[in-house]
Design a protein around this nucleic acid. Structure first.
Lengths: 191, 191
DNA sequence: GCCCGCATGTAACTGGTTACATGATTGT
DNA sequence: ACAATCATGTAACCAGTTACATGCGGGC
């Protein structure tokens, strides 16, 4: 009953340790840098999760490099636990897209502000795309974890498809806004 | 200080009422049916938010149609409040994609399970695309809120671009998995 | 000696969902 | 009469972030 510190966090932590042993601190950096484009964890989640995993024997802690630091490694039962977690159904998170919410109320927000929002989204998508291209190029040259790289490439490809879609939508939408009657709510800033 | 029942919910509720007056119940249905593909709110959010908005004079309540039911309408100051909220910067929510997380650990999960996950994602995207096409067709025939429809179409377009991107990625990824060495972790289910 | 980066952890708070309790209206 | 739906609200809980407290080790 007790002890459900979020299966998702458990999965991410065990998964990361299944690639190589790390400290909690390094874990967070790895998640931010490698899984960053589709996942995130904060210290407030990671440390309690590690303690819990240790209690269950899914990971072992060995005070190693320097005092006050611990190296965490996954155990065989931890690997089995990870397999169990991974096969559980993906739970859909309720959508909450702040950009689309604002655009939806574009009549009140004003066409110009909408244009600005979309332009910003386009810039973000472009930056994201460039970033992923860079990572993909780096990964292609690495030989660190050959069994894991094809799966990493899968997730990078997902990000790139998504970014390109955002770019195409932004262009299309900016064009659509240009053909709109000048403005439904822009000029009467007098209110 | 007190009274921040989430600016996002406030925005969604005020925005919905800016289109037409509704009961709290109808509000939730409208959000689910119209904004459903990019937004969600639950009763537990909506009713406290309405009470709060009423306290601030942003909406008025008029017991109307039948006993025990209230009609909520936005006030002029509420419209101004909505404008203020809409112009606030979009706060990026930390990404958490359960599908990509599982795929990333595909070495442990096994290639076959990955294939199944992607196939499922593809089916979901196709269903989503069909749904949005249907809505777009309906909207084109409506004359209810002519000033709001172009913005609705913007959000629908975003959903369609995103769904098509998911489809393309799924096809590409399924092909990529087929060319992979049979399996890194599939056959040794013995362990 | 001092600051910065690594490292571990906790407490408080926010945002949000779920489940429940309650009752009125409408249709059969 | 009874069931289904409309309608309003609350309480309990869950997930997750932020900010804080603490300390070691190394470089300047």
């Amino acid at each position: 009953m007790a002890s459900t510190r979020g299966k998702q966090t458990e999965m991410a932590v065990l998964g990361a340790l299944s690639i190589e042993p790390m400290t909690g601190y390094a874990l967070r950096e790895a998640i931010r840098d490698v899984l960053g484009h589709f996942w995130s964890e904060s210290f407030g989640q990671i440390y309690p999760a590690l303690a819990e995993l240790e209690r269950h024997g899914y990971v072992t802690r060995s005070g190693s490099t320097r005092a006050g630091s611990s190296m965490f490694a996954i155990t065989p039962s931890g690997t089995q636990r990870l397999r169990d977690l991974l096969t559980q159904p993906v739970q859909a998170t309720p959508p909450r897209n702040g950009l689309l919410l604002r655009l939806f109320f574009g009549r009140t927000l004003g066409v110009d502000a909408c244009r600005a929002l979309i332009a910003q989204a386009k810039a973000d998508a472009q930056r994201q795309l460039d970033e992923l291209d860079t990572i993909a190029a780096q990964v292609a040259g690495e030989t660190q974890h050959p069994d894991d790289t094809p799966f990493l490439l899968l997730t990078i490809s997902a990000g790139r498809h998504s970014a390109r879609a955002a770019l195409a939508w932004a262009d299309e939408s900016l064009a659509a806004l240009d053909t709109m009657r000048p403005n439904p709510a822009d000029k009467d800033e007098t209110r």
